[in-house]
Design a protein around this nucleic acid. Structure first.
Lengths: 255, 255
DNA sequence: AAGTGGTCTAGACCACGGC
DNA sequence: CCGTGGTCTAGACCACTTT
């Protein structure tokens, strides 16, 4: 991380990736926090100190801290310092500002997650989906259907519709990881952002059978629109989540 | 906004408020977008152009644009430009990254909202609430209960518990605006951030009667912890929301 | 090649909190 | 008063998109 060069970015790209410096800083701090080198409530080194330790500019450190705060991992207090968020220690749940595979969130929360149903096939979209994706009704889509369980309890039912530009049915069928990981790592252009709409609904017949619950039981319903960094729509996901054993949170700010 | 001074902040504070320059920039752009001077999908002036038009630095413009993007009002596309978000034109809903009074969100969506029930009283908290607020069980709290309707349909049922440091029962009873506005404008320290946990539940007897729905009907349930900029807990809110006529969205990013 | 947003540096001053 | 995070400027170069 440390360097004597004027612009450290050049060095970083030689070393490993072409990721921004502030992301490297974020990851370094995340490692410290998740590895409990820095405990909940504990004070981080000051911005000034971090610039020296890491050998990067103040802006870069602050960019990293801003993102970590958005994720709820730290809290910055003007005049007194930056602290590891208390809540990151207890029963941790899912922060929504960040796109993350379900099983990653579950893992961080110390819960077991398991894919108990998975099906990939090529389909022709119906009118509504075609409209939302901005495509013709005769354009083929890859449909992915997944049920995930937490501690043995079916908790999330996901149906994704992805454009073929992200790869065909075979590629996705063989993919071991999550759909989100696939979209980020294998798609061109890659997944960069998502717009998620949130509802509370009663489980219909299909959802009830997939999640093994009674019809009409309240579940969180999300419609996720997957976008590339340039705003291109890559796909759309329909999620039903049982919030009994898992739920999301959002950090909100006054503007 | 324009100035020849090295640090424009001094000027700003003389003129009116002590708000950051980038907030002024945000508000200027919001006015243009909401006033339809800039229409959905339309391209904004480039960052470079904005620095000249507004007489502020590149960083300041970018800070403003970053916040507006988080709010879902604009989309930035590397290499091509910044655009007014399409979705801000159609059936607009509530972006969750920002703390906003319910009625403000509704208003922006072009919906009528109306407070159809409101009660303020002083209470002693039960054990659970006292624990979440980090106070003794004999500390008095202000309890605010509100039902809001959208287009005549009861849609949100809110129960807030606020510390007395934010003002007594009388002050709040006479307050015309929303509780959130009160916490931001009249509280010392003021409301700055909130942590919101999201669930889907069935309406219990109380909620059903307040929202005039059947018991067991799925509603979104939120627990909002209100915090000052220094992380001090100001209060806690329990919301039940009917997502039939109104719902939230969240913009999420890959990190 | 030109235009536009993304990242980064270096340095300055302000506002807040605690000593 | 001092340490800390917050805001702001000026200038540089990179990465991506469009012409």
């Amino acid at each position: 991380m440390a360097t004597e060069e004027t612009n450290a970015n050049n060095i970083i790209s030689f070393v490993g990736g072409r990721r921004p410096l502030y992301v490297e800083v974020m990851e370094e701090l995340e490692r410290l926090i998740k590895g409990r080198k820095l405990k909940p409530g504990e004070k981080l080194p000051s911005v000034e100190a971090l610039t020296e330790i890491l050998g990067v500019s103040r802006s870069t450190v602050r960019e990293a801290l801003a993102n970590l705060e958005t994720q709820g991992l730290i809290i910055r207090k003007q005049g007194s310092g930056t602290f590891v968020s208390q809540s990151s220690g207890k029963g941790f749940i899912g922060g929504m500002e960040r796109i993350e595979p379900f099983r990653m969130i579950a893992k961080r929360a110390g819960l077991d997650s398991e894919v108990i149903f998975r099906e990939v096939r090529t389909v022709i979209p119906d009118l509504e989906i075609a409209e939302q994706l901005g495509i013709d009704v005769d354009t083929k889509l890859i449909r992915v259907e997944i049920v995930e369980a937490i501690d043995g309890v079916p908790t999330m039912y996901l149906v994704d519709y992805l454009k073929e530009s992200c790869g065909g049915e075979e590629t996705l069928s063989e993919w071991e990881g999550s759909v989100l990981t696939y979209l980020v790592e294998r798609c061109d252009p890659p997944l960069n952002q998502s717009r998620t709409e949130i509802f509370a609904v009663g489980a219909d017949e299909v959802v009830a059978s997939k999640l093994e619950i009674a019809e009409g039981k309240p579940v969180q319903y999300q419609v996720d629109t997957y976008l590339s960094s340039s705003g291109e729509i890559l796909g759309i996901g329909f999620l039903h989540i049982l919030t009994d054993h898992f739920h999301f949170f959002v950090n909100r700010r006054v503007v």
